[in-house]
Amino acid sequence: MVDRLKTEYEGVVEFRIINVESDPEGGRLASGFGIQYVPSFVFLGSDGNQKDLLVGEVSEEQLRASLDALQ
C-alpha cells in the first residue's frame, strides 16, 4: 500500500521509509520524534515542521487524508 502511494505522490510528497532495527540513525530519528510504536508515520510540511502523526496499522484512507493535508 505504501509503495503504491509513494508512486502516486511522487514529486508531491517525499517518502522516507526507515527500518528502525537495521538503521541506527533512523532509529535515533524515530526516538527524536517520540515514536514509541511501529509502524508509525510522521508527516512534515515543506518547512520541515511536523504536521501529523499516525501510529499503528493504518488504512489507506487515513494515509491519504494525512498526505493530502500536506499539500
Binding site: 522516507r16 515514536i35 511501529v38 510522521v42 508527516f43 515543506s46 518547512d47 520541515g48 494525512s66 498526505l67
Partner: peptide, 14 residues
C-alpha cells in the same frame, strides 16, 4: 529535518 522543499512522510517500521 532537512527537506528538499516538498512535504515529507516518514514511515518507521521493523
Amino acid at each position: 529535518v532537512a527537506t528538499s522543499g516538498t512535504p515529507v512522510m516518514y514511515e518507521f517500521y521493523t
